[in-house]
Write a protein that binds this DNA or RNA. Structure first.
Length: 797
DNA sequence: GCATAATTCGTTTTT
DNA sequence: CGAATTATGC
């Protein structure tokens, strides 16, 4: 885990350029004509349409190297954005190799989000944040929304928080601030209160000094729009802009780029986008394939360079992929030419009885390949939906075949990791209410719903953080003694940890760069502190006492987490890293078959690729068809294209005649995509167990396909979708949940009490104020006696 | 407040 | 069919 965010701060700006003079760089060697052109066309807008396996990353990295080498710009003057951390890391590495320097000095190479975060931290105060703002993950987001729904008296059963989170995500992906959300769209949630909720949510984030992932872009856009001077600063700074996987960009990312490119007239902008419209598979999460299709209009006079020479696959594989993708209408059009030279094996298509047989069959083929000396690492199984994976896992376990599942729950998404991080976040920032919420009763401390509800209400009334609220509450008698003692202890503990955190000066863990190898590096204090926090809080113990099977693994993960902290210079730096870099190191040490979804396979390649489950409904997915119609079908087809083009030498498709979905068996129809493969590149195989005549193999090369596309509109699913769409469009009669009974609300003049006032307290009844101390009142109650309470819990009686 | 039974509900996923 | 979340009883 490289400490990118930390190291980049060091002024190594000249590191790359200074070494260039000494090196005879032959970076242009080995590039084909188009690639070289794409590298050398530095000025003006450029669209590089790079088909699968045509050397896209190579062009991108070489282009950067070229810009540096020729002195067109220095490293900090180049903005290069990717979508994933993995891609960013890879680029850094390869640029490093090309220019013979380390990754240092490319401060603006990163994901949209990490660069967005970097920009926001620099100008935080202009968007209502402090520069040490917290980046929320989806978990925190949901928690926060739940609180807001609760506060607004919206039934969370009927209007689930995750649905609203999805809507907001959607808006943010499209660059919409609360004010810009159309009433029609907002009407679809909580009887039209969505817009207010969105605004409340944003306001709450500011109070919490936090931003969610969407904000990292959206707030940048707002910043640029509202502060042209700031934007101008970056116009001057960035001489060249490069964007990877442009077909995956969404509207917000487009706006972001557009603003940054505005320093010059569009026809002169030095912006280079690289992508493949045929590999756009993220439409469902906001990607606008239109961005890439429209590039030439956005940037008039843009050069377009097509990379069509494929260095990956045999011609049969390529033929299959090209033939299939040609069925799409909205595409810019490329024709991949193989450079491999071999025709290779035919693409195998096998029909099997059910998914169990499918797994058995693929297992056998893999064992066969293994006997032929193939490496398991060079084999992958790519599925459409993750539930298909289980069958393979089970089979491979009984076979004793090594496999690895890629893209499962990520390290930083595991419960124990999030809990541990919440502890650390709360040490780092006492006002992190979401972190507080997460761990206040983890491990179990006997603080249940009622106690926490009380704390929350008090916090809401007083507009203080949960930590501060509790700090006040424990000085009163609002809480039951047991809970009060527990909370007091917890607060004290955190204060203690914070003291320890401050006690250690930063200088202590500065790494001695000149130390000879072998010198044991001192464990940074914050890793130690983390260990202490986890031990003293009882968190470690909680898992030690847990007898479930996963407990051991969780403890391991916690250790790993603490160890990984040692690579960071400060707790803050570490926390930034974990909130943005959510990917795990790929353990490629062992030889194993890879099992993953088609989506997570993008960008990878394998000698042998198995593509199971080519059945109507599963692939293409019925749901996508229902929701997005023809556009959905085209995206599914691109997904198929991505799958096919992952293979270098061997491609094996399969389909089951019967599949169990949601517990019940359904007979399946072969995928229409099978019909779209060129017959001459395909070989239909038979497992022998398929029932003659029914099987796909029985039809002598003609695929027993699927209804024509139009019939999709007749499926029940489609009609359902239509119906939903209708109901969403028309707001309909406004039904009121009946829950409009006024709650005892703070009337705003809350804290204006004086000694002698008669007040009412929900729990203790009527009483008279004896003394005032800030917002703490001492009251002599008529029935309950003398108590200390918070002013927000009483009303004038 | 917490452990256990009943119920709901089923893509794809990065940051 | 099975996970994952929610209602129920102690």
């Amino acid at each position: 885990m490289p400490a990118e965010s930390q190291r980049l701060e060091r002024p190594a700006a000249g590191a790359i350029t200074s070494q260039l003079g000494r090196r005879d760089v032959d970076y242009l060697k080995g590039l084909n004509e188009e690639q070289r052109e794409a590298v050398l066309a530095t000025d003006g807008p450029l669209l590089v349409l790079a088909g699968a396996g045509t050397g896209k990353t190579r062009v991108l990295t070489t282009r950067i190297a070229h810009i540096l080498r020729t002195g067109l710009a220095r490293a900090p003057e180049i903005l290069a954005v990717t979508f994933t951390n993995k891609a960013a890391r890879e680029m850094k590495e390869r640029i490093g190799q090309l220019v013979g320097a380390s990754i240092e000095g490319m401060p603006w190479l990163g994901t949209f989000h990490s660069i967005g975060a970097r920009l926001l931290r620099r100008h935080a105060e202009l968007v209502g944040l402090k520069s040490d703002f917290t980046i929320l993950d989806t978990d925190d987001q949901i928690r926060l929304i739940k609180q807001l729904l609760d506060a607004a008296n919206i039934d969370e059963k009927r209007w689930p928080a995750r649905v609203f989170a999805g809507m907001m995500d959607n808006w943010k992906n499209r660059g919409l601030l609360p004010a810009n959300v159309s009433a029609a769209e907002a009407g679809a949630f909580a009887n039209g209160r969505a817009q207010t909720l969105y605004a409340d949510y944003q306001a709450r984030l500011k109070v919490l000094n936090a931003a969610d992932f969407g904000d990292l872009l959206l707030e940048c856009i707002r910043l640029f729009n509202q502060h042209p001077d700031v934007l101008a600063e970056y116009h001057r700074r960035f001489k060249y802009m490069l964007v990877d996987e442009y077909q995956d960009s969404n509207v917000a990312q487009y706006m972001w780029l557009r603003l940054l490119a505005q320093g010059k007239p569009a026809s002169e902008a030095n912006i280079c986008v690289v992508g493949d419209d045929d590999q756009s598979i993220y439409g469902w999460r906001g990607a606008e394939i239109d961005n890439i299709l429209r590039f030439e209009k956005d940037f008039p006079g843009a050069r377009v360079i097509r990379l069509e020479r494929n260095y990956r696959s045999t011609s049969n594989i390529l033929k299959a992929a090209s033939h299939l993708i040609a069925h799409n209408e909205s595409r810019l059009g490329k024709t991949l030419q193989t450079d491999v030279g071999e025709k290779g094996d035919l693409v195998g298509v096998t029909s099997v009885w059910d998914s169990e047989e499918e797994a058995r069959h693929i297992g056998e083929e893999i064992e066969q390949l293994q006997r032929q000396g193939e490496n398991l690492n060079s084999i992958a199984i790519l599925v459409r939906a993750s539930y298909q994976m289980r069958e393979f896992e089970e089979r491979f376990l009984t076979l004793g075949l090594n496999y690895r599942v890629i893209g499962g729950p990520r390290f930083y998404e595991r419960r124990e990791i999030r809990d541990a991080l919440a502890y650390l976040r709360l040490v780092w920032n006492p006002n992190d209410d979401l972190a507080f919420d997460r761990i206040v009763n983890v491990p179990k401390r006997g603080l249940g719903d009622s106690t926490l509800r009380l704390v929350h209400e008090a916090a809401r009334h007083q507009s203080t953080s949960l930590t501060d609220t509790v700090r006040m509450l424990v000085q009163t008698e609002e809480l039951k003694p047991k809970q009060r003692a527990t909370l007091r202890q917890l607060i004290d503990q955190f204060d203690d940890w914070r003291r320890r955190a401050k006690a250690q000066p930063y200088g202590m863990m500065e790494v001695d760069e000149d130390a000879p190898p072998g010198v044991i590096r001192r464990t940074p204090w914050h890793a130690d502190l983390a260990r202490q926090v986890l031990d003293e809080s009882g968190y470690t113990e909680m898992w030690q006492n847990d007898k479930s099977a996963e407990a051991e693994g969780r403890l391991e993960n916690l250790k790993e987490l603490v160890n990984s902290m040692e690579e960071f210079d400060s707790l803050g730096g570490f926390l930034e890293h974990v909130s943005l870099v959510m990917d795990r190191d790929t353990g490629e040490a062992e030889d194993a078959v890879s099992i993953m979804t088609l989506h997570s396979a993008k960008g990878l390649e394998f000698d042998t690729v198995f593509l199971p489950g080519w059945e109507e409904g599963l692939f293409p997915s019925q749901r996508t068809l229902d929701e997005s119609g023809r556009a959905g079908l085209e995206e599914e087809r691109r997904l198929a294209y991505v799958g096919l083009t992952r293979a270098r030498k061997r491609l094996r498709l399969s389909l089951a005649q019967n599949r169990r979905i949601h517990g019940l068996w359904q007979s399946a129809i072969p995928s229409r995509f099978l019909d779209e493969l060129p017959a001459e590149a395909v070989e239909v195989k038979d497992t022998g167990s398929a029932y003659g005549g029914y099987g796909y193999g029985g039809r002598a090369g003609r695929f027993n396909v699927a209804d024509p596309f139009d019939s999709v509109y007749e499926t029940p699913g489609w009609r359902r979708a239509q119906a939903q769409h209708q109901s969403r469009r028309s707001p309909g009669p406004v039904t009121i949940d009946g829950d409009l009974v006024a709650r005892s609300v703070d009337d705003g003049r809350g804290s204006k009490y004086g000694v002698g006032d008669r007040v009412f307290h929900l729990k203790f009844g009527y009483g008279r104020i004896e003394a005032l101390e800030g917002n703490k009142l001492t009251i002599e109650f008529e029935k309950a006696g003398r108590k200390k309470v918070l002013d927000s819990f009483v009303q004038k009686g």
